[in-house]
Write a protein that binds this DNA or RNA. Structure first.
Length: 301
DNA sequence: ACATCCCCTTAGCC
DNA sequence: AGGCTAAGGGGAT
C-alpha cells in the first residue's frame, strides 16, 4: 500500500462534498476520510490542488475516485447556469467546490429506502447494522470496514433478520427491492440511459407493480440524482420544501402555496408540481442547486 | 420519571 | 381519485 495522488479539478472541496448529506458511511479519522467503495476500502484527504489517497490492493483507485467525485462535471459552468438569484448564489459561495457524487445505484437506493420518515443518525445506524450483518468484513489501515450487502444476500435474508438492523417496517421494502434487483440486475443501466422523466417513471412504475417497495417521488429523485446521472432531479424533503416556500414563493400561485404550507408535506401530485416548477427555474442542473441550498439552509438558517 | 413531539416519506386504506 | 394516517425507534423537550 502506498500513497498516491490525483490532481483535483479547479473547483473541488472534499469535505463539502462528503458532508452535504447526499451520502452515508464516510468516516473521518484524523485528517483522512475512510470508506468502502465497491469491494475495497480507501482513505483520502485534500492537500491543496491534490487528492491524496491510499486504498486496498489490486483496485484502480485513480479511475474510481475521478468517477465517484464527478471530476468530469464542468462545475464552473454548472454553477454559472444555476446562479439564478442571490439566495442560491450565497449558498454556492458558502459551499464552494461542493460536488455531487456518483454513487452505486444499488447502495444508494437501499440507503434512501432506509432514510424515509426518520433522522440522519438513525439512518446511519440502520445502514451500518445492515453492513455489519450482511456485508463482508475488510481490514484496511488497521481498521475494520464492511462492504455494502449484495442484493442476493438481502433477497435471501428473512424480514425479521433485516428488521433486527432497526429497519422497522422498511425491512419488507428492503427485501422486496433486493428481490427485484436480483431478478433484473440490468435495470440500473436501462434507467441510466433514459431521460429524467422516463427514468423517474420507470422507478415509480415499479412502485405501482409493488416491485420496488419503499420508493416514492423523493427517494426516486435521490437515486436518480446521486447515482444515475440525472442532474435535473431535485429531491424535495421537508427542509427543501421549507426553503422553497420561504425563498421561492413568487414562483407559485397563492392558493397552491397556502395549501402546501398548511399541510406541511406534499401529496404525490403536489410534489410533481413543485419539482417541475423548480426544475424549470434552475434548469438541467437543478439537482446541484438543490444540494447547495439544502446544505446552506440546514447549517445557516 | 414520563409523555409527547419530532424526524431527509411511503403504502395502503377509504 | 385524492386525501388521510400509520409505520420504528431514539433523542429532545
Amino acid at each position: 500500500m502506498q500513497v498516491s495522488r490525483i490532481k483535483a479539478p479547479a473547483l473541488f472541496n472534499l469535505s463539502h462534498s462528503l458532508e452535504c448529506g447526499q451520502v452515508f458511511r464516510w468516516r473521518k479519522i484524523g485528517e483522512f476520510w475512510y470508506r468502502v467503495l465497491g469491494t475495497g476500502a480507501v482513505k483520502l484527504r485534500q492537500v491543496g490542488i491534490y487528492l491524496e489517497f491510499e486504498g486496498s490492493e489490486g483496485i484502480d483507485w485513480h479511475g474510481i475516485i475521478g468517477h465517484y467525485f464527478r471530476f468530469d462535471d464542468d462545475l464552473k459552468s454548472i454553477v454559472r447556469t444555476i446562479s439564478r438569484d442571490k439566495f442560491v448564489s450565497d449558498a454556492i459561495s458558502a459551499y464552494r467546490g461542493l460536488r455531487l457524487l456518483r454513487q452505486d445505484p444499488w447502495e444508494c437506493m437501499l440507503s434512501y429506502i432506509c432514510a424515509t420518515n426518520t433522522n440522519i443518525p438513525q439512518i446511519e445506524r440502520t445502514i451500518d447494522n445492515l453492513c455489519r450483518k450482511f456485508g463482508r468484513r475488510i481490514r484496511f489501515d488497521g481498521k475494520e470496514f464492511y462492504t455494502f450487502p449484495r442484493a442476493e444476500t438481502l433477497a435471501k435474508a428473512s424480514i425479521s433478520s433485516i428488521r433486527e438492523c432497526k429497519a422497522g417496517y422498511r425491512a419488507e421494502f428492503i427485501k422486496a427491492t433486493a428481490e427485484s434487483i436480483v431478478e433484473d440486475a440490468s435495470i440500473f443501466d436501462q434507467i441510466r440511459s433514459c431521460t429524467y422523466e422516463e427514468a423517474r417513471e420507470e422507478l415509480l412504475k415499479f412502485q405501482q407493480q409493488k416491485v420496488f417497495k419503499g420508493i416514492g417521488p423523493k427517494v426516486a429523485d435521490c437515486v436518480l440524482l446521486f447515482s444515475l446521472d440525472k442532474l435535473e432531479a431535485l429531491p424535495i424533503d421537508v427542509w427543501i420544501l421549507r426553503i422553497i416556500v420561504r425563498e421561492y414563493a413568487n414562483l407559485f400561485n397563492k392558493e397552491f402555496l397556502d395549501k402546501i404550507k398548511t399541510r406541511g408535506s406534499l401529496t404525490f401530485k403536489d410534489y410533481s408540481t413543485v419539482s417541475k416548477t423548480m426544475r424549470g427555474y434552475f434548469g438541467g442542473y437543478a439537482g446541484y442547486a438543490q444540494e447547495y441550498i439544502y446544505n446552506y439552509a440546514r447549517n445557516l438558517l
